[in-house]
Amino acid sequence: MPSRTSCTCTSIHASGRRETLATIVSEASRRATALRERATFDLMRFRKFLLLLLHDKLAAAGLVIIAAFIFISIAAPLLVGPYPTQFDRTKAMQPPSNAHPFGTDWQGFDVLKLVVYGGRVSILIGFISSIVAMLLGTTVGLVAGYYGRVTDQLLSRATDFFLVIPWLPFVLILVAILGSSLATIIFAIAIVSWPTTARIIRAQVLTVKERQFIERARAVGSGNGFILRKHILPNVMPLVWAEAVLTISSAVFTEAFLSFFGLGWRGPGAVESWGQIANEAYVNSALLRGLWLYFAPPGIFITLVVLGFAMLGYGLEEVLNPALKRRV
């Protein structure tokens, strides 16, 4: 008897396993279909979104500028060859020539090469600082807006405080004391960049949390953390994206000032950012020697990138926030 029982048992087991397998397979295929449908839906939405964005001339122009600069930064070795490393004082501060269209810097390096590579450092720092600032700003905005009362009071005061302090002396003092490394520069830039985001996110959370579905979620017993993560965050996320792009713009700008004050960070392979190139041109009085092609290009590139991200950011804001639409 025991053996039979065991036999039935295994057969049940076997059939059960087969059934489970079948369910798993069908479940998987169902999920795959759902996923594919969702992906196409997302893709369609994305395409629609992109079309809308490209329809906005400002955003489209910004996108083109950014794409161009990211391409230049990545393809730098292909465009101008390897980054110069051979320090040669005899070739320093040369006026523009055929070999060096923008002349050479104080180390004898080709300015064109420096400028093309410079975007790597400037844009990289902009991206990372923006991510850090978004994490900080979004968290503060969510918590302040959702919990309200004393929490909101405290966080909002802190936000206002960091919003009004003069940003340049603040980042200068931070980086001067902490020493200039990638981490400290990003920390300093993020510290002055998060408040605007926190403010905007908080305002958005205030309107979202009054909606009915939040009340319903609470009625079925969802916790605060769950509501924040699953219901409120997705609703403010589009704004976070727009803010992130705008923050990259201001981060690149801030980095340029830090570097111009001699507190810049050199990228891997001692690559200089645009701000550092401008600083060296200034310190070596390039303009007084008439070498304006040494000083002008880094500034133009900073302006274009800052402008590009700002235009894309404003465009995104307009597409995502219909209330702003009529301003166009």
Binding site: S249, F260, A278, L287, G290, W292, A296, P298, I302, A310
Partner: peptide
């Protein structure tokens, strides 16, 4: 105004000096 706002002031000032004083 947006372009002006995107320009770093150290660059603007030095270029102005270069153009209008040099």
């Amino acid at each position: 105004t947006l372009v002006g706002y995107s320009m770093p002031s150290f660059w603007v000032s030095l270029m102005l000096i270069f153009a209008l004083a040099y």
